[in-house]
Design a protein around this nucleic acid. Structure first.
Lengths: 181, 181
DNA sequence: ACGATAACTGTCCGATCGGTCAGTCCTGAC
DNA sequence: GTCAGGACTGACCGATCGGACAGTTATCGT
């Protein structure tokens, strides 16, 4: 073996995450990844079943974390769910900032991916939670706004200290929702 | 001539806008467009110089409108610019909702397009305007949040009456910015 | 020292893409 | 009628993509 297995696998995932976040999933070829890593394209396909498998492995942790949040929020009553949804969503988006950027780059291609099949449904429930499970169109719009605000801000990766960013995402989202603390 | 020129051109643009918004620019082939329109792929390339040219013609009006907003905002003083930026941006995003969706689907591919070369710079100035030209990191974060909130909400095309949507985008954005009316 | 096995690669393949081009078809002016 | 020119198309092209596969290299247990 030229390299230890885990080493090259990790390098491939790291390079792929970088390239997917910069140029999108469709905009990145296996050749591009192989060039960055410094191995052959065939080597990628030795470690991973295919290009899909790389994306799946990259996004699965974020998907599972979102599923956890989804389950947690389901057990809260309506007046407590809003703050929990905001905090959980912001922390999730910050923790998986690079994955969010990948999603942002190629939203349709990545969302229709098997590993993320449950995301649309969970996103819809997250919006419902952000809206305090109200069906008022106005509150649904603001909930969508929070979804987009945190999403794009994290994907944009602004040059701001992490704690300031988190604090402002939380407060800004609550202000958007008209939630008085 | 089988059809009047303008008819087929218009059908091509309409179909392309639809497909680009649904599957992204990269995810839509000339063959896809031709199939929807009901003509040959070669016919598309008779009416347009290339796939790029179709995207350019689709997004140019939105780009020009953004440039107008950019120029208008430049002439306002700091305490007036925030509300003007919010109103102008929301109205722009609503007017070019489908174009926003196209942008959302394939952000890197579309933004590096010649016709939209000035957009990143204008977007940056728009963020500055939304932040009241303050350099406070907290205000910059909230400005980015508004940018994303309106962007994603318009791209998502929620099933809400147009006037309610506009009203909530405006009020929600101002609340996000902590702007007391 | 030496197979067995895992790690890795060069090369080829079919599919699909955007784009070109010679040629056909139709229409309207004369 | 006819003919010039715009509208349109089928067939083809080179490039690039994800992927398959036989073969080579390096490592380790014995």
């Amino acid at each position: 073996m030229a390299r230890s297995t885990s080493t090259l696998r990790g390098q491939i995932l790291e390079a792929a995450l970088d390239l997917f976040a910069t140029h999108g999933y469709r905009g990145t070829s296996l050749h591009d990844i192989a060039t960055v890593v410094g191995c052959s394209k065939a080597s990628l396909l030795y470690h991973f079943a295919g290009k899909d498998a790389i994306l799946t492995e990259l996004l699965s942790p974020a998907g599972e974390a979102l599923a956890e949040l989804d389950a947690d929020l389901a057990e809260l009553d309506d007046d407590r769910v809003v703050e929990a949804a905001v905090t959980g969503y912001v922390d999730l988006a910050l923790r998986f900032r690079r994955e969010v950027t990948v999603l942002f780059q190629d939203i349709t291609e990545t969302l229709c991916h098997p590993a993320l099949a449950h995301v649309p449904g969970m996103a819809e429930r997250l919006v419902a939670s952000l809206a305090g499970r109200s069906t008022d169109p106005k509150r649904l719009v603001t909930a969508h706004m929070v979804l987009g605000a945190v999403f794009v801000t994290c994907a944009g990766d602004p040059d701001v200290p992490a704690d300031v960013l988190r604090e402002e995402l939380l407060h800004g989202s609550l202000r958007t929702l008209g939630h008085t603390t």
